[in-house]
Structure formats: structure tokens, C-alpha cells
Design a protein around this nucleic acid. Structure first.
Lengths: 142, 142
DNA sequence: CTGATTGCAAAAATTTTGCAAGCCT
DNA sequence: AGGCTTGCAAAATTTTTGCAATCAG
């Protein structure tokens, strides 16, 4: 579905913003980029990224996550627990979330594009991405 | 804009679900209901609610927040930090979030209704509420 | 080289839990 | 009265910070 930016491109964005490419950041970037639909919390990211770069420290993951959020590469979202999970910030994310069991289904279409246009005009905002979530009960939980 | 349920009505929902109305819960409920557009984190809620009911303990706030979330009266969302903030779960929430300064503008209409209908059919979901957020840069930050 | 970045360990902050006492119905 | 709820204090988690050593450019 969505065309994701390659890890190379993301590295480029890091550089353009004046940050260094370190093994720690690269590992986090790879983990994040390895699965378009991943929703990983900081602890997950640490575990995954350590497979690539074992020396990685926990604090560094937080710092990398913060940096990547600042660069609009990631975005934290709520998925039922008290810890944030991070998703790719690009484009749109469309979730159907079950309040009962927590299942998350992704769906494709949404007409946020049109609305986006008029909001840009109305509020003078420059819009880059969006999140649309519906909450309810899934088939199984009914 | 949205017609909010009165505190009385919410109390009723608590009761119907078989929970007791205690001063702690009432205080949290009042805080939550005092401002339609509040985005409070647990610590904020504790501080506010203690003005109403000073004996209130922190753990109780977490328990109340959890309960109210379960009853679909509240919903946690992430707004750029690592702690969740709680918003009224009713109906839809439509945010224009500035990545730069964090400002959140609410806008009124969105096309979620139509989509909601088709998603219910397609996935067998029973949809109760939704969240639509656009991310970008506000007028001032450009 | 040189400042940005890291890992570590310690400090903070947040969230969860156990339990006796207290309160709602 | 009886059981749900509470506040407290302690445990568990999660997040942030200070700093010397290291690394990318």
C-alpha cells in the first residue's frame, strides 16, 4: 500500500538535519523500517535493535525515538496500554481498534485528503500526515 | 458543539454497570466533565481532583481512569509525550496538531460517519467513536 | 580533531499491587 | 452487614539525566 521511504532515504533526512549516523540510530531505524505496520513500544525497539547492535543502551533508544519523532519519521500512538507505541509518521494510518480485546485492524481507504485540503486553507496549516482511528467492538467480541 | 453527557448521566452509567459512586470517582468525573476539551494526564487529574476531594490518592486516580476508560467514558491518547492524556470518549475528536509547537486546534466536521458505516459492514465491527488527527505545522510556526 | 553521541548507572517519574480500614448501598 | 473501594506504602516499570569515554564526520 503506502510507499515507504527507504532506510537510505531516512538516513539522508537525518544527515540533512545535521545529525550523525551512528550504529545505534541505524539499528533503531532498521527496526522501525523493517515492518511498515509495526507498533513497537520502546522496550520492543530495544530488544529488536539489540539483535542488530548488541551494545545498544536503553537510554539511547529513548533518545533515538525522540529524535525520530522530532524529524517526523515516527509518531507515538495509544494502543490500549500505558506505554506509547511508535508508528511510521508518513502518510496516513487507519485503524479499527477493538476496545474489548485490543485487536487492531488496518483499513485502506479514507477520504482525509479532501478534508486535509480545506483545513490547510481554513487554518493556514501545512499538513503532512494523519491518523484516523475508529473504536468499537470487533466481530469476535460481540 | 458536541452535546456532552451531564455528570449525572455519567454517574448513572457507573451505577448501571454495577459500580459504586464514591467521592473519589465523583471528583475524577467532575474534573473530566468540567472541560469538554481538556486533555489531562493522570497527574493533572490528580491535582485537579484533589481540589474537590483532598484525600484522593494517586493510585485511585489510576484505577478511576482505567474504570472510566472501560466504561468508554474516557479514552487515552498520546500527544507527543510519553504519558497518556485522557479525553472524553464520546463521539469524535478532530485535531489539527502542530508538530512544531504542539498546539492543538479542534475542527468541527469530518466525514467519518460515512466511512464508519461501510467499515461496520466490511469488518463486522460495532463502532462507537473515532479520532481523526492531522499533523503538520501551524500558521505561526511557518 | 572535536563536538555530538553513547552506554552506564543512578535518579525521577509513572504505574501497579497488596492490604487493612472505611464507605456505599 | 458485606463486599466494593480506598489510601497508603512499597514494588515494578518506564523515562530521564549526568558524565566520562567513544565515534562520526
Amino acid at each position: 500500500m503506502s510507499t515507504l521511504q527507504s532506510t537510505d532515504h531516512l538516513i539522508e533526512r537525518l544527515r540533512e538535519a545535521g545529525y550523525k549516523l551512528t550504529p545505534a540510530r541505524l539499528a533503531v531505524l532498521k527496526v522501525i523500517n523493517s515492518d511498515d505496520h509495526a507498533h513497537l513500544n520502546p522496550t520492543d525497539v530495544l530488544a529488536q535493535a539489540r539483535k542488530i547492535y548488541p551494545k545498544l543502551g536503553r537510554a539511547t533508544v529513548y533518545r533515538a525515538l525522540e529524535l525520530l519523532t522530532e524529524l517526523r519519521i515516527l509518531r507515538p500512538i495509544y494502543m490500549g496500554e500505558t506505554t506509547p507505541r511508535f508508528i511510521r509518521a508518513e502518510g496516513g494510518h487507519h485503524h479499527l481498534v477493538c476496545n474489548e480485546c485490543g485487536e487492531v485492524i488496518e483499513f485502506a481507504e479514507c477520504m482525509a485528503g479532501d478534508l486535509s485540503q480545506s483545513l490547510q486553507e481554513e487554518f493556514g496549516f501545512e499538513i503532512g500526515s494523519h491518523l484516523l482511528e475508529f473504536y468499537g467492538r470487533c466481530r469476535a467480541c460481540k
